[in-house]
Amino acid sequence: MTQRRIPYLILAPGLILLILFLVLPLISIIFPTFFDGGFTLAHYISFFMDDYNVGIFWRTIKISLIVTLVCVLLGVPTAYYISQSPKKWRGLLMSLTLFPLLTNSVVRSFAWITILGQGGVVNNTLMGLGVISEPLTLLYTEFAIIIGSVYLFLPLMIITLVGILENIETEIMEAAETLGANRLIAFVKVVLPLSVPGIIVGSILVFTGTMTAYTTPQLLGGNRNIMLATFLYQNATALGNWQGASVIALVMIVATLVVMKLFNVVAGRMDKRGEVSA
């Protein structure tokens, strides 16, 4: 009898800590957003009735979508190249991909401040060449957030994809070429479909990561290009609007879950082998 309880007993500390310090805190901030005398959705309705809030919501979705697309476009060929290189090279290339991923994201965002800023590398170069006479506004724009986020998440996409693409045998590509497909067609018709599971997992990571990121929009977006996470922080600190911050918190959680579900549905349609878990 006691023997049978042991598995549950050794699970218990973890479960209790998660309930006490993850679930309860979440409930404690989200519960009040549904009560105002009685049960109400008013806070959420008014959040989505406000053009300013909706603007931030859609900007966040739009930026996440663009970042994910760019990461797929840049990531798939690169991951394919890595997966097809000789073993010795592959280890080195994987280390090179891993390095940025393990480097602090403040450092990686800061790099783009030095590149895109008023006196940054791009403006200096263009002005030096006489292409422009006034510095361009590159930093504190949506463009800066997008490039910073691609920079942040591309290694993650590549590493996720290499894991999948390594299993594709070179013979398949050779067979396709022997059968008359040129390399580009073989890539699009053979490699791309086989990498769908990797693309889905990678896209979930990149999309939800960009959608909930705080560091990059804070450092590269400035005050005019607020995203959900920076909006939450601003509400809680500068505006002292805890209720509003909690509403945004739940919006972010729900959006994350919806995105994961959507990607899995798409994956299920494209690949009948079953759901991909993130």
Binding site: F21, P25, I29, T212, A229, L232, A249, M252, M260
Partner: peptide, 13 residues
């Protein structure tokens, strides 16, 4: 799955 900022915010609260 819970965004990091939300984890920190709810713990703080």
């Amino acid at each position: 799955i819970v965004p990091g900022l939300v984890v920190g915010y709810s713990l703080y609260q």
